[in-house]
Each structure stands twice: as C-alpha cells, then as structure tokens.
Design a protein around this nucleic acid. Structure first.
Length: 439
DNA sequence: TCTGGGGTCCTAGGACCC
DNA sequence: TCTGGGGTCCTAGGACCC
C-alpha cells in the first residue's frame, strides 16, 4: 500500500500563508521571469484561469477580478516544502519526496497505518495542516499509480474532503469508469491521442487492456502503468539519488546580442550549477553551454548554439568550470543573434569519493586540496549571506548582490537582462530581515 | 513588448568490436 | 556475384513528470 500526499496549489498556498488578508482572494504565482501562470489558488481556478497561460495575455483580466499576483519565490517554497516533508517523515518511516509538493509513503512496513487506512490518511492530512498551514490531499492505493489516481479523486471530488482510500474493488472500478484516461500518471498528450484513436477514453478501458497488447502499441513504461492500475506493483519507493545531470538556465528579461552579456549570464549559470554539484558532493566531466533565440518570434528563425567542454580530470571547482565554459562560448558564439535564453548543463557526473584520475594528467594534490577548501569557504559564506542579505530583497533581485562570486559573472548594476520578478514576496521563513513582526 | 525550468527513462540507430 | 552474428557504447530524440 502506498499513500500519495500532494499539497493543494502549493505555491499559491505558500503565498497565502503569511497574508491572511488574501485568505479568500484569488491568488496566482508566475513562472520565472514573470512569464506564465504556474500556480492558482482555488478561487483563481474558479475564475477559469488556465495553467501555463502567459501573464501578458491575462494581465487586465487579473486586475479586473482583483487577483493577487506573485513572482516565484523559490526560497519560500523550498523551505515550506522541507517543513511538510519533515512532518511526513515523523508520521511514516518510508517516505519518498517525489517533487517540491508531493511525497509517496510506503505503508507496507507500518502496521499502524495498515490497520485503518482511512484513519491514518486523516491523521496525515490534519497533522500536516496543523504543523505547516499548507492544505494537502491524500490518496491511498495498492500501487503508486493507484495512489496517484486516488489522489486525483481526492482533489477532484469535493465529497472526498481531500481523502481517497482505494481499498475496495468496487470503489476502484467506479472511479476508473468515470475518470478520463489522460488523468493517469504516465499518460501524457501523445499517448492520450493514440489511446483515443484505439477507442480508449476511460481509465477503466485502459486497465482492461491486456498488458501485452499495451506493450505492442506502446512501450514498457506504458505496460508497467497498465499493470500498476491492476494492482501489480512495478514501481517501488525510490531513495533520493544524486542527480546525473544538473541544469541551470534562464530566459532573459530582454533579448541580448553582445558577447559580454551572454558570457556573464553563462558564467552565472556555471556558478549556480557548480554550487548544486558540490552540494551533492559530486564532480563532473562534461560541461555543455547553450543559448537560443526566441522560439515564439514568427519573423526570425529559431536558432540555437551549443558546445561542450570535457575536463581532463572531473571537477567541481567554479574557477576551472568557468574557464572551460569561456572557451566553449568563444568557439560557438554567433554575433547578430538575439538571444532569449542561455544556460549550462553538467553531465558525466560522478561521486567525489570515486573519482578515477586521468592516466597521464595526474592532478596536483596540493592544488586539489586548496580548491576544495576555497570552494567550501565560498559556499559557506554565501549560505550565511542568503539568510542575512538585504541586497536581494524585494525590487533588487538582479545580480550578485552581497555575495562572494567570480568576477566574470559580472556586476549587478549592469545586468538589465536578468529575470523580471516584479511581484516578489518577502522570504518570510529564510531571511532574518524578512521576518514578520507582530504588533 | 511580454510565452518557465529542471529532471528521468527508454528507444533507435550508428560506430565499432571480435 | 555472393557479404554473419553477436555484442557494447554513445548520441539524439521522444515521451513523460512536476
């Protein structure tokens, strides 16, 4: 038995948490660069605001309906997420954090839960809500895919009051009959199209297909989904693994053409990616640099540039990585393109402890130790600054303000291409200067 | 004017090996 | 003229997820 816990309208709920005045108001949260709507409170959904719609298209509509608009405040959401996950870990020994707002619990080793699944699901819901203030839905089923389906039911049907336990076959069948097949976890747009052409529109119809037939028409992934819907466990709880790829990329608030601007942006992404790399105690062997023009401009062809650097010895030293990225960018840069987005990807990632050195280029051990210490100091100082710095507070979210950084990532004032975050809320829970004061 | 970002898994096809 | 069989590794691209 698995439970899936999902936070309701997570980003919007986080924003409401510290703004009681918004309790009944519609709230939307925008993607990076204030591009699209990525989260909507229940009131905003009721207004018919669609997920993923570009902000500029509905700006007036939002104003008319007094919708509160926020830029993404990732520091706030990450911290609230950690609180939710901590609470869940207190309630069950086997937790898989699946995304920022979702977690699977495996109940098989937890008799207290198995005894009375409904009571346990209620306990989860009320405890998380009391500890964190974030409303959640709970779905329980024999497999992960069924728990997901149950969670969908808890979200969609008000009668469930946010809790759905699929422990009776009749219940499960009924739910599958009234649920469209595209709501199944693992069935996206393309597969839905194909299923429709085969005359399959409901979950029940898909579940009734034989798994070998599914395999014929699709692939093993779909076959597993089909088996899971029939109660055959194909997916287990997954441990948090070190990332095999790390990406940092962003759209610019305005198009850029100059090499220096592009370079500053790319080097900033190298720095961010390197921090993530060190955080999981890895090193990388390959660094990919890419940049592209807008895919939405009908007047100019979409173009992208891309190139990679292979390190002789795997590294996580920001300075080494920036030097590599610089070489690549000089090689691939095309003048006269209007770049809309740029970034880097780190590949061939290995654990620091298991590095295999190059046969001929033995690394200098002393240098290696110096590098490790230097990076550790830089990361530690920047972490402290993140808690205290006012430089990145509301309205001045651009640039490197107040941190230790490599000079080639540029100086804050000049970077007018940095992303827009016009509606950023304070970092209530992660920055001393943003703590709420109660009068 | 303005359209997100960060991941995973799987497959097909090419290059190469013996 | 006829042109095997079995394997690995890598890359690109498609599909999915949140």
């Amino acid at each position: 038995m698995y439970a899936l816990i999902d936070c309701n309208s997570f980003y919007a709920s986080c924003e409401k948490l510290f703004r009681p005045d918004l309790k009944r108001r519609p709230v939307v949260v925008l993607s990076n660069n204030d591009g699209c709507v990525v989260a909507r409170s229940a009131e905003a959904k009721a207004l018919g605001i669609k997920m993923g719609i570009p902000y500029f298209q509905i700006k007036d509509f939002l104003q008319q309906h007094r919708v509160a608009v926020f830029s993404s405040n990732y520091a706030l959401y990450a911290d609230m997420s950690a609180r939710v996950m901590n609470t869940l870990e207190q309630l069950c020994p086997d937790v898989e954090v699946y995304s920022i707002d979702e977690a699977f619990l495996y109940l098989g080793r937890y008799p207290a839960a198995l005894n009375d699944l409904t009571a346990y699901a209620k306990l989860i819901k009320t405890t998380v809500e009391r500890h964190t203030g974030i409303p959640v839905g709970v779905g329980v089923g024999k497999t992960k895919t069924l728990a997901k389906l149950a969670n969908y039911a808890a979200k969609t049907h008000p009668a469930t009051q946010g809790i759905c336990v699929l422990d009776k076959a009749s219940w499960t069948e009924r739910l599958m009959t009234i649920t469209p097949v595209e709501e199944v976890w693992g069935i996206g747009r393309q597969h839905t199209k194909k299923l429709h052409s085969l005359g399959i529109t409901t979950v029940a119809q898909f579940a009734a297909m034989s798994h070998s037939l599914v395999r014929q028409h699709f692939n093993v992934v779909m076959e597993r989904t089909n088996l899971e819907l029939n109660g055959v466990m194909c997916l287990g709880l997954e441990a948090a693994m070190a990332k095999q790829e790390i990406v940092s990329s962003r759209s610019f608030s305005k198009k850029i053409t100059e090499f220096d601007d592009l370079s500053q942006a790319v080097m900033g992404h190298v720095s961010k990616a390197a921090v993530k790399l060190r955080k999981q105690q890895s090193v990388c062997k390959i660094l990919v640099v890419f940049a592209k023009t807008s895919a939405f401009n009908p007047n100019e062809p979409y173009q992208s540039i891309r190139g990679q650097y292979q390190f002789i010895n795997a590294t996580c030293d920001t300075r080494v990585m920036i030097a590599g990225a610089r070489q690549v960018l000089e090689r691939i840069y095309k003048p006269n393109l209007k770049y809309a987005k740029a970034g880097v990807m780190l590949c061939a990632i290995q654990d620091q402890a298991t590095i295999v050195d190059d046969l001929f280029e033995k690394p200098d051990l002393l240098k290696q130790q110096q590098s490790q210490k230097l990076m550790a100091v830089m990361d530690a100082i920047n972490q402290q600054m993140a808690y205290q710095s006012k430089a990145q507070a509301k309205g001045s979210s651009k640039g490197n303000g107040g941190r230790l950084f490599i000079a080639s990532t540029g100086i804050a004032k000049q970077q007018d291409w940095q992303m827009n975050r016009a509606f950023l809320s304070p970092s209530y829970t992660t920055k001393l200067s943003d703590l709420l004061t109660v009068h």
